[in-house]
Design a protein around this nucleic acid. Sequence first.
DNA 1: AATGAATGAGTGTTCATTCAT
DNA 2: AATGAATGAACACTCATTCAT
Lengths: 206, 206, 206, 206
Amino acid sequence: MHNHNIQKKKPGRPKLTNDSNITRDQILQTASYLFMTFGYEGVSMEQVADASNVTKASVYYYFKNKATLFTIAVSSMFRRIKIQTDKLLNSSNGLKHRLYEVTFEHLIRPHIDFETLLQEASLSLTEEHIQEIRTAENEVHQALENIFKQAMENGEIVVKNPLLLAHAFSTVTMIRNKKELIIELGGPEKTAQALVDLFWVGIGPK
Amino acid sequence: MHNHNIQKKKPGRPKLTNDSNITRDQILQTASYLFMTFGYEGVSMEQVADASNVTKASVYYYFKNKATLFTIAVSSMFRRIKIQTDKLLNSSNGLKHRLYEVTFEHLIRPHIDFETLLQEASLSLTEEHIQEIRTAENEVHQALENIFKQAMENGEIVVKNPLLLAHAFSTVTMIRNKKELIIELGGPEKTAQALVDLFWVGIGPK
Amino acid sequence: MHNHNIQKKKPGRPKLTNDSNITRDQILQTASYLFMTFGYEGVSMEQVADASNVTKASVYYYFKNKATLFTIAVSSMFRRIKIQTDKLLNSSNGLKHRLYEVTFEHLIRPHIDFETLLQEASLSLTEEHIQEIRTAENEVHQALENIFKQAMENGEIVVKNPLLLAHAFSTVTMIRNKKELIIELGGPEKTAQALVDLFWVGIGPK
Amino acid sequence: MHNHNIQKKKPGRPKLTNDSNITRDQILQTASYLFMTFGYEGVSMEQVADASNVTKASVYYYFKNKATLFTIAVSSMFRRIKIQTDKLLNSSNGLKHRLYEVTFEHLIRPHIDFETLLQEASLSLTEEHIQEIRTAENEVHQALENIFKQAMENGEIVVKNPLLLAHAFSTVTMIRNKKELIIELGGPEKTAQALVDLFWVGIGPK
DNA sequence: AATGAATGAGTGTTCATTCAT
DNA sequence: AATGAATGAACACTCATTCAT
């Protein structure tokens, strides 16, 4: 630790960057939850700060502006979802059961339609912001698509267009917002079951 | 609702009041379009006024506040949709074709997820506002449910839960927001076709 | 005043535009004083509002933003100065006395170097704003130039470059800021006198 | 000022403290340039830090606050100017040529009216800060005054009030801000020439 | 019926400043 | 000596709402 040390010790307080920047992560977690719950305009920077137990100025210390915070928050959320979805791909269960699990997870987690959210936010986002989010979002869809492709190869399902299927499936799980419907159908488990069944057999006469 | 009194034409010169509904209707039409495009917080009363070619104060002359304007605008929009959907019920085409038509119409009309919109707006709405909107929305779902019930009785489709089906169906058509997907699939006609097919045969092995 | 009246009476509250919009004028007067005293960044919109006895939002009702308020305020100030300067042109006094009067007026009115002010503000102004201000400013210089030209034709003065003279003269009167110097010289009257003398005879040996 | 102790080299290894004045001097140099270019409020501590290649906190390590930084920066700038002006006093050229040189130097160096700058900053400065700056500024004026006095004694010029002359002269060189005028007059050399001429012969009839 | 004027409360953002390291 | 983290106070600007006309 003396001056003889060859590794140049950087002056000043060391950064927290690498292992864990707790405050920054806390803000991101809070922000993504709030944005997914109340929309872009529906969430103020002060709300994010309060819910993160920091001051508004601290949020700005870590994120240049609201659009940037939004972009990073939802992108990292997508990355978490992608990882979770990838795990399913390697699970040993049959596809139908795995679909049930994805559906169930979606139903119990409260958030809003992402396309709608993005459309609202896009008034304030730059083209780069949108591209960054789209990239993260696509990774999730590709993960889903992979599950479907794998199932096709296994002969588990018959499908013409796996990409459309991935989108349709992730859209349908949006039904989660309709709390009353879920209650009427007997809770999220039964609703998830019924949705997957619907997807599985279709509605046409056999 | 007020324009339906076809009978009982009042004697004498009609009041100007009737004409002025033109302004009111103009505002409503404009408002519902804007709200469905940019969300609740994304639309200001000034935008509504400007797009309606009136002043902000005029909007307040007809509607007590933003929440009320929103409630009336989306409710009357739902009523228009319900009427359109009801027409389908009486159409002589097969169900599959009628579903295609509904899907296609949704795909080309630009608007955002209604549940998401309502969730965002609900921060500013009273319980009564929400109830009024839900009532109007349910009428649309019931109209869809009726179509499915009729098809079940005709033996056209096999379905366990027509209510879930109605929701799932109206949710899936939300895919409309994903412009790029639609382009990739070859335009709205083909996308609509593929979606209905997916719904019709399901994905499970036969 | 009945509907039969051919002149279409405009609906709503009549505008105050033409004869006198008191509030707007009050804000402009206040703003130009504050800007000339404390600079662009040194004056907040709230200060302008408070000093004008209106709310901040009212200032924004009349002026789109701070840059616009600044532009209009200083431009209209220049227009007032130009009018005053033009009056001098037609005065019957000799040039030297008229210069004394201009100088004296400048010395007692407190404000800062306009070029400096503009340079500071220019970070926030658009090119159009700057052009508008320059135009108004030039009118003042031209009015001064005219005085000098007239004097040249009368043989009152000998000058090579009336434009430079106009600028130099209006710049020198900036000495007004140096309160202590003015006091040391025996007040604004004597200072004005000394300044004009300096300009008149120059410093070179005769 | 601190680098002038050429004599008395201390024995042993010199303290790092001496070297570090490089950082401090760098900040001062940067700060005075920025303040003279963008005004007091127009420059943020972060800008100063960035332009000096240090962090904001480092600026605070050397200077208690913005007002202090400003005071020291402009005072040391005045001291540099005074030294430069003193050199002129001992130059062998005639006064007219020396005035031309001063004027030319001013015209090409970009900065704003100091009185205006000080007036803007004075809202944030203590009385002591202002006094300190005034003292440094006065030294410059006295240096100019000395040049004029010397010229009077030599019979080069005829002047009633050398102090006013010093102020008037340093004020007139402010014309530098008017870039367009300078261009119109054929560049800084010709403008400087014309200005000195104007001062030299005055405008009155001979 | 319709409008110009006016405002209070809030929003995104910046900035000078402090402090532990 | 130098820095990353954090903050309170202010600022420009917006917006839903009210009111006299």
